[in-house]
Amino acid sequence: MSQQPAPPPPYRPYRQVRTATPHSRAVSCVRFSPCGRVLATASLDGTIALLSPSSLAVIAVLRGHTDGVSDLSWSTDSFYLCSASDDRTIRIWDIRSVLAGGAQADPGADRCVRVLRGHTNFVFTANFNPQTSSQIASGGFDCTVRIWDAKSGRCARTIDAHSEPVTSVHFIRDGSIIVSGSHDGSCKIWDAKTGACLKTVIDDKKPAVSFAMFSPNGKFILVAALDDSLKLCNFATGKFLKVYGGHVNRVYCIQSAFSVTNGKYIVSGSEDNCVYIWDLQGRNILQKLEGHTDTVISVSCHPTENKIASGGLDNDKTLRLWVQDS
């Protein structure tokens, strides 16, 4: 902490303000839209719910997947949402009418504009290219990373990326490279254009890499492994800069998040039913949010407000909204 330019403001705790149960089974993913006006949640019941980020009222339900949905990603303009499902497809949903009409939008309308077929097993993760939003990267249990042209729905590239299921793919902010993590314990960086492997950041057989994402500025990656660890890594050198611990993560691919709207935090779910908030620089646990009654599988931070959404697995099924006191 001594090198930090300005002392951090005193930590103001988050508290639970809302809870909702939009799905009949476990919540698998929660994602605020980049515009901050919609919260999307995915569930093992195969549906996707669009909710108001303040009241958690359901605005629309997206039906179409025939099996559980594991991951969601918004296009940068918040116009489209893509979902990765165990039915081996990725679907692209048009959210424009929801953004335009707000609560008046027809909740049951079929908003699916495209089905991306090609994965030969469960699709576990999908991510929009933040620059063009015409490109989607996906990964799944067929151990491949695929790059799709969102406009035509064509699979532009298939990369035999890993030897075990791919747990996460994430584009860097300029869309030039992709990070992927896998159950084979490795974390690799790919050239989004050519599909070439540029770097193997982690090359261990164990533990499985359950989650990997770029930092907001694209200089670091946040990597979670199934040995209760969450690390900030300089992907150019492969060195771990910060290690965040104290939570439990042995089984599930828990999605973490960077919180940058107030202080700089790392937020993650945990298998002890809590949401953990660490200080980015100091690595100390700032807060444990208690309330869920099962593993917290996914968290998302609102793009502009000091708000965290979290979702719990089957014994809980709830979506919870946490707000920082002002």
């Binding site: 504009v113 077929r117 620059q131 063009t132 939003s133 491949t144 035509s152 729905g153």
Partner: peptide, 27 residues
Amino acid sequence: ITFLPAIPSPDAPDEQPEKCLGSSSKL
């Protein structure tokens, strides 16, 4: 303007499933 937002064109009704061009190296 460096990119134009993509507008996904709706699925063609006769689209064949498993339409994928295979692995990059094979391509």
